[in-house]
Each structure stands twice: as structure tokens, then as C-alpha cells.
Design a protein around this nucleic acid. Structure first.
Lengths: 235, 235
DNA sequence: CGCATGGTTGATCATGCTCAATTTAAGTGG
DNA sequence: CCACTTAAATTGAGCATGATCAACCATGCG
């Protein structure tokens, strides 16, 4: 229909949602319909659902839930990817959602016939909570090297659910400064940590493409286990 | 009826839930009924809802969502108080819920007539997510002194919702080791931080009773704002 | 009394921060 | 294509917060 979008395209968001819960034809149709109302948000701009709605669905790009202090410090609480719900949480004082890259969102499709969509959204919220838990554990107890690799493992798994990985590689369109805000470090230290990891052949990162050389070994070292679906099956 | 429990007693959990959303007589009755099936859990023991149910409600005591590593490190992700829901989240590998003090739980009352209870539970989940966000921010960007005071402010507000504060004082039945696991510090450093805060007259803590001497000044210094209800009214 | 738990102290070490430059990369307009 | 501008990555030196290790004290309880 429109140049860059064919309704039956398997968009990353659809890939993920149907992995979270099997979607029937009605659910897929609702998703198609919603995607027709997509909207673009430029980097650094605030991401918020249409003014009349309380939620939205991310279709592509990277966004972040950020908290900032009056002295300029920032902390990224969570990274949002395609298929993630943009709940209008009652942001306390300083929690906002901003685009880290160009982001596309659409209104949340309403699961009229409840065609698996509601289940997928519920599961999505469960996973988000899991990611928040993990991030707390990461910030509380891991050092810089482990924080970074642990987050990369998790992010790789999330991108895999979207069909956006190729083997152990994936696109990571973030700056070191953003990683610092995410991991509770300074950009200087992120830089040095990355140099360490490159030197030790743990990863390669250039031109926005990152590759983990031995994710299994990393996971073992970090006690990392991928997120699990509701019935414990690897996801 | 039973010695320590009169049905019409205003329990902390009820205080909180009815502050989150107004409960009608049916909701209150459901709560009364559920509280009749209360169960005690000893410190250090795992807290889990009745085997046949997926959720439970905390009536009293302090519990914690904990993550632990194979080398013995621990991180407390969230503290649960009376009125908090015990969702059986699909705990990934190492997330468990343990009692920090004696804890009482009961089955989650089902909101038959939807008498405000469902709204209260929904709001409770929203708040929990807010607390997770805050904890991430705390661990990511605050130093030991600020982490501790920020958490104390938040905890004071939570206890105030339960009617368990007296002015600026409240009961804090945790060990310094537990605080360390919560704040991503060592118990040695928590000890030294507390000494600092006592010396500077920021707080007093003895016999499990803690008092913040000037919460307003602390809040100003930390950019701290209390959690807000759905409509932005102070809660 | 003896043991156990939790709190306290000291000395040393190390991880990560701060500050300040410098280099590289990526655009942009002429 | 080059001069100019800006954001991002990189480097170095010194500092500080918090960890580690190892005792030692206080309290409570069987």
C-alpha cells in the first residue's frame, strides 16, 4: 500500500508478539490495521502515544525510559524495542521516554476478538518486569565488564526474538555515552571497558554492528540465563 | 473472632488498598474473608502464595524479591510490605521471594463485584513498577549516602500509606547486611554510612526504630518526590 | 558459660570517577 | 572536493568512593 510497508510483511513487532502468544487471523489483522497509523519520532525526542490514547506499540527503533536529575545526571531504566508496549505509566517526576534512534510507533491494536493479542501483551509486560529486575541486579552487584556483557547478552536475546540478529551479531546503534547512562557508568569508563573486551576478543563493535564472540562462555561466567516463556520453554 | 484479629479491624493492607482506590462494602468484605485464611511465614523462608493460587496478598511483615548468584552474592530487587501483591512472576532462574521478618499472607481476594479491589490492585502494580524504576536510578547514579537516604524516604512514604509511621519515625526491622544487599553495598560500608548520617544528625536508629530528622531537607537534596496517585494528587 | 548473630573498627586495595586534552568520524555548505 | 563544524571516541593523570580482609565487641539465648 504505502511504499515501505506491505500489510502482510512480518514486522519485528509482529514476530515478537506472535512468539509471546500465538496470534490468530483477527489479532494479525488488528496489528496490520494499527501499523497503518504509524508515526515517526526523531532521536532525542520524547516518545508518547497519541494524545487520545494511553498506550502505544513500538514498531521499530530504540527508545529508553530515562530519569534525570536537576544537576544533569541521567539514568536509563529500560530500553524499549519493537514489540514493546509504551504504557503511559504515571511517570513520577522525572521519568520520560525518549527515542535513542528514529522510532516508529502506532496505536495499540485493540484485541477485539481477544485473538491472542491480549495474552501477548500480558506476557510482554511480564517480560518487561523481568528486565527491570535484571537491571537492578546488574547495577547492584556487577562490575563494569560484567554489566556491559550481561546487558549485551540480554539485548541479543531480545533482538533475536525480533528476528534482528544474525548469528552472534546484531546492530547496536547506541553511543558509548548512552551505554554509560544505561549501565550507571561514565562514558570514559565504558570506552575503556569496551577496549578491554575487544582486546580480550570477547566482542567486536564497529560501524554500529556488534558481535559477541562466545556468548555461551559469557553466559556461563555471568550465571546468565535467557528469559523464559510462561511454561519455562526457552524463548 | 480469633484472638489477634477482628474482622472489622483496619489492617495496614486494607488501609493501603482503600487509599489506592475507594473500596465498597463488597470489596471490604472480600478482604475480610481473605484475611481469615492468613498464613505465617518465618524469616528467611520463601514466601509463596498457596500452591493452588498464582497470587497472594501480604498482610504484615517485610519480604524481599531477591536474586542470587552461584558465588553467594545477593541483590534485593524490591521490598514487599503489607498490601503488596505477591504475583508469581515467571521467576527466571534465581529470583525468589523471602521473608525478612515474620510475614503474614493470605490468598488474593477475588473482586467479585469489582468493588474497587481490581482498581486498587492495578494501581498497586503500577506503583511497584515505579519503585523498580526508582531503585534502578538509585543504584545507577547515587552514592552510598544518597542511596540509603533516598530509599529511607521512599520506605517512609510507603509505610505512611499503611498507617505505620509516627511522624518522621517508623520501625525498620532490617539488618545492616540486608540493607547492603538492597542497596548494592557491603555491610561494612552500610555501617559506616549510617555512622556518618547519625553523626550529621540526619537520622537516629536504635532498637529497630528509625527517625529521619529532616525529611524535607533530604527530599530537596535528592530531587525526591513522593509517588503519586493516578491523578497526580500527593499520595 | 558458650555460641551465634549482628554491629563496629582499621588498614589496604581497586574499581571507577573527574578533569582536561586530543583524535577521529561525520556532516554541511561553499 | 575542501574548509568548517559538531558529535563521538580515545587517552592520560590523579583522585575518591567503596570493597576486601581480618579482627574485635555487644547482645541475646540455650
Amino acid at each position: 500500500m504505502t511504499p515501505a510497508f506491505r500489510p502482510t510483511d512480518i514486522s519485528p513487532a509482529v514476530t515478537r508478539l506472535s512468539a509471546l502468544a500465538p496470534l490468530g487471523p483477527e489479532g494479525l489483522a488488528a496489528l496490520d490495521e494499527a501499523q497503518r497509523h504509524r508515526r515517526k519520532i526523531a532521536p532525542h525526542r520524547e516518545v508518547s502515544p497519541a494524545s487520545d490514547s494511553r498506550t502505544g506499540l513500538i514498531l521499530s527503533g530504540w527508545a529508553a525510559r530515562v530519569c534525570h536529575w536537576s544537576d544533569g545526571r541521567r539514568q536509563i531504566m529500560h530500553v524499549l524495542l519493537a514489540g514493546d508496549l509504551l504504557d503511559v505509566e504515571q511517570a513520577p517526576h522525572s521519568v520520560s521516554t525518549i527515542a535513542l534512534t528514529p522510532v516508529e510507533i502506532c496505536p495499540t491494536p485493540h484485541a477485539n476478538g481477544d485473538d491472542g493479542l491480549a495474552a501477548a501483551f500480558a506476557q510482554s509486560r511480564v517480560l518487561e518486569r523481568l528486565y527491570l529486575f535484571r537491571h537492578i541486579a546488574r547495577l547492584g552487584r556487577l562490575n563494569a565488564v560484567d554489566r556491559l556483557t550481561d546487558w549485551l547478552l540480554e539485548t541479543r536475546d531480545r533482538l533475536a526474538m525480533l528476528g534482528l540478529t544474525s548469528g552472534n551479531g546484531f546492530s547496536l546503534p547506541l553511543t558509548q555515552e548512552t551505554l554509560a547512562d544505561l549501565l550507571g557508568l561514565t562514558s570514559v569508563h565504558v570506552n575503556r571497558t569496551l577496549q578491554l573486551l575487544r582486546r580480550d576478543n570477547v566482542l567486536e563493535w564497529s560501524g554500529g554492528a556488534l558481535r559477541l564472540n562466545d556468548p555461551a562462555a559469557l553466559a556461563r561466567h555471568l550465571d546468565y540465563q535467557p528469559a523464559q516463556g510462561k511454561s519455562g520453554s526457552g524463548l
